[in-house]
Design a binder for these strands. Structure first.
Length: 464
RNA sequence: GUGGUUGUAGCUCAGUUGGUUAGAGCGCUGGAUUGUGGUUCCAGAGGUCGUCGGUUCGAACCCGAUCUUCCACCCCA
């Protein structure tokens, strides 16, 4: 009795075309990571539960996939918690491992464990899947890839500059239309919270502010009131809501609003530097936008924060994000090491490219030569030729059995073969073979013992 | 985690108030065409209607559970 197979919620199979496209995407991202001097690392798919818990806030803890202990896990379970149906209390006694939730925390763990081998600043990139027990939606999966580039051990804002240049380089090569990168700064948010006398409520304040474009100013004010921010503070916030102008103009107004000793001033200076520097470096595809409503809930960011929106008209959340975290490794006992990084959401970028028809067509033509199988002797001669083609870097295969020509041509067509090699009895007797260009429908004849056929293939490949 | 939504052939979808043998287009296989694909024509295969259970003389259709899809919260890539 066969069970009907089913795939787990929020996971996907990838067919050959999809894998080719994902490889292409990853290849572009990897290439630019490397060209900016980042080095690859990989970390295990699961970590100690204690490494992950508490790093992403309460919401994050819930979304971490926990791995049940092996063996008779119940015999070691916390009895009291079990009796009381207390899942949270039970957890640590039945699970000590969990699937990685992102790449940044495992990286921090890596840095601390390998600190003596690393030359600082250390720039690494990492392209691996992560898992979240979220409810799936379009562009939201339970298993998805992140492509991260981070640098630890440098406070310099030039790192932020380079990271933003990577965004620009990658999206430019992918042929994306204009892409908006929102910028904000944790200290700026802290400064504004201080300005309105709500420094204790920074988190609630930030989370509410983040929803501005979704629920509007009134909705935000309502949520802030309900989270304990008082009306007087809200009144002081009015000028922030009314900020206008270019990025630099917004920053200038904010600098005027905040006292000279406010933490906001540092944030404003940083953002101003990024804005001006990148203006001078001529971005091609991304454009920077100061956006105070950008919260990025991750608990560890302390400085500049970024978020990359999907291009206009594409209904998709953010396709990338990042920021600076001053003390991530502090959690693991290594103090005063500043880090900054960005992430590309591979799966979402894939969906955007697909929707905008931006994948190169050439990705689909993987088979360059298909040789027809027209008899045993003939197949042998064809196989020898294919060996020569392969040695020259072409992908080539022989139709596995003798069959009607029509059938073999249909197969070649479906496989997307660019050329068909025809070598039948007649050709063999006359010491020649034919190459048919499937796109053009043209057929050319070559002598079996010359390299003219190969030269022809390579020449056409290079010109097209 | 909360509320809603979806599931019929490989794909996209019809299917009447519950009533005999569940359909179409595309795709697939074979043939028209014994050495030439992408066009055309002919024929054929393929479905226990997501799964399990219930109501009924009778269920693709009604009810429940479960899995899956998508959506809104929440959060995020």
């Amino acid at each position: 009795m066969g069970q009907k197979p089913n795939i787990s919620k929020g996971t996907r199979d990838f067919n050959p075309e999809q894998v080719r496209r994902r490889d292409y995407l990853m290849g572009v991202i990897r290439k630019h990571f490397q060209s900016f001097g980042f080095q690859p690392i990989e970390t295990p798919s699961f970590e100690q539960l204690s490494t992950l818990m508490g790093q992403y806030g309460e919401e994050g803890d819930r979304l971490i996939f926990k791995i049940l202990n092996s063996g008779d896990y119940l015999s070691k379970a916390n009895e009291k918690a079990l009796d009381e149906r207390d899942s949270r209390g039970l957890l640590s006694s039945i699970s000590e491992k969990a699937l990685r939730y992102d790449l940044t925390v495992p990286f921090a763990r890596y840095v601390v464990m390998h600190q003596n081998e690393l030359t600082l600043p250390f720039k690494r990139y990492q392209i691996q899947p992560v898992w979240r027990a979220d409810r799936p939606q379009k562009g939201r999966f339970r298993e998805f890839y992140q492509c991260d580039a981070d640098v630890v051990g440098s406070n310099s804002l030039w790192q932020e500059v380079e990271l933003l240049q990577i965004y620009d380089a990658v999206f430019t090569e992918l042929g994306m239309p204009s892409i908006k990168v929102k910028l904000n700064h944790r200290r700026l948010l802290a400064g504004i919270a201080q300005l309105i006398g709500e420094e204790k409520n920074v988190v609630a304040f930030t989370v509410a502010l983040d929803k501005l474009d979704k629920i509007g100013r009134e909705g935000v004010e309502k949520e802030m009131l309900s989270k304990g921010i008082d009306a007087e503070a809200l009144a002081k916030l009015a000028p922030v809501f009314e900020l206008q102008g270019t990025g630099l103009e917004k920053l200038a107004s904010l600098a005027d609003m905040c006292p000279k000793d406010s933490p906001a001033q540092q944030g404003i200076e940083d953002l101003k530097f990024l804005y001006q520097t990148l203006n001078g470096l001529q971005l091609k595809t991304i454009s920077l936008d100061i956006d105070l409503t950008l919260a990025r809930g991750l608990h560890y960011y302390t400085g500049v924060i970024f978020e990359v929106s999907a291009p206009e008209g594409v209904k998709m959340g953010s396709i990338g994000g990042g920021g600076r975290y001053d003390d991530l490794t502090g959690q693991f006992g290594l103090k005063d090491l500043s880090g900054v990084g960005i992430s590309f959401g591979l799966d979402r970028i894939y969906l955007v490219l697909e929707e905008l028809c931006l994948f190169p067509e050439a990705l689909d033509n993987t088979l360059e030569v298909l040789a027809l199988n027209l008899g045993e002797e003939e197949a042998m001669s064809a196989m020898k030729l294919l060996g020569v083609f392969r040695a020259a870097g072409l992908s080539a295969e022989l139709y596995p059995q003798v069959a009607r020509m029509q059938k073999q041509f249909k197969y070649a067509d479906k496989r997307g073969a660019q050329w068909v090699l025809i070598l039948g009895t007649e050709e063999r007797e006359q010491n020649r073979f034919l190459l048919k260009d499937m796109a053009k429908g043209e057929q050319h004849e070559f002598a079996l013992d010359s390299d003219q056929g190969l030269k022809h293939l390579l020449k056409v490949l290079r010109n097209d």
